[in-house]
Design a protein around this nucleic acid. Structure first.
Lengths: 137, 137
DNA sequence: ACTTAATTTGCAATACGATTGCATCTGCTT
DNA sequence: AAGCAGATGCAATCGTATTGCAAATTAAGT
């Protein structure tokens, strides 16, 4: 548990019991989780607390928000080298229309986009939909 | 008005008064519109009717749905060469964090993405966030 | 340990977009 | 003109996101 605490402290987040539990939970997940996912899969939880915990995590650059087009916001732990200032998702997200799970694909980089003149780019977000490994077999 | 009717008929949509009004409205917009946008900007409208009208348009490949990450689904007319079978957005969408408007940038094509083996791609969706021309000046 | 101040947590309540059910209306067919 | 199918409008519901407030917990000082 000590390492979880350290991880929170490193991001200037006070390590409360709840936060440790949520962080621990998120670490075990391979797919991005919605608030409802977390609420249902964890025991003895209050939705609002999860909501605020995740929001704190997000503000401090510990998790990033993913909008995979399903209409439900999901969250996943940031990579170790994420920092608060620019923790935009530089990797793409894969949404499986079969199992409805969303996975981060950090290995796959986002190709650079050239915008028409006059547009100033701040963030690029790439969602790829298809069928994932597990569902293909 | 005749051309609007033709446009609906060409997509196998029965040209009712409501549908002509909505199509006409959409044609005048430069930015993608949410249901609420349409409801508020058009007069004498019922949200549900707009909802179903837009859904019909979408199913018949007349408009496409845009999830720009704002949490609110928006819609825009498809380009002329869209067809029902594969009217996935092959262009990218630009979301201005200043004016909150979402514009289609049909001229800018989506770079090809190479997925890890085992993933089967169906659709690619690219949202770029930043500041648009109008808001920069 | 004890008190106090500041966060955090949990419950209730609200806001809002999306969606459905159903009754009515409209327009076309016979 | 009657009948029928689809379109429309209203009421109601669902689910997620979000806020207010009081109780509980944590951190800090004595």
């Amino acid at each position: 548990m000590k390492d979880l605490e350290q991880q929170l402290i490193a991001k200037q987040i006070k390590p409360t019991a709840m936060r440790l539990l949520v962080l621990d939970f998120l670490k075990e997940q391979s797919a991005a989780q919605s608030l409802t996912d977390i609420e249902l899969k964890m025991e003895r939880t209050d939705r609002v607390t999860i909501y605020r915990t995740i929001r704190t995590f997000e503000e401090n650059g510990l998790v990033h928000r993913i909008d995979d087009g399903s209409g439900i916001t999901k969250f996943a732990l940031c990579a170790a080298d994420c920092n608060v200032a620019g923790h935009h998702d530089l990797h793409l997200h894969f949404y499986c229309s079969e199992c409805k799970e969303t996975h981060c694909l950090p290995k796959t980089t986002i190709p650079e986009v050239k915008l028409p003149t006059g547009y100033q780019l701040v963030e690029t977000q790439l969602i790829v939909k298809g069928i994932c490994q597990a569902c293909l077999t």
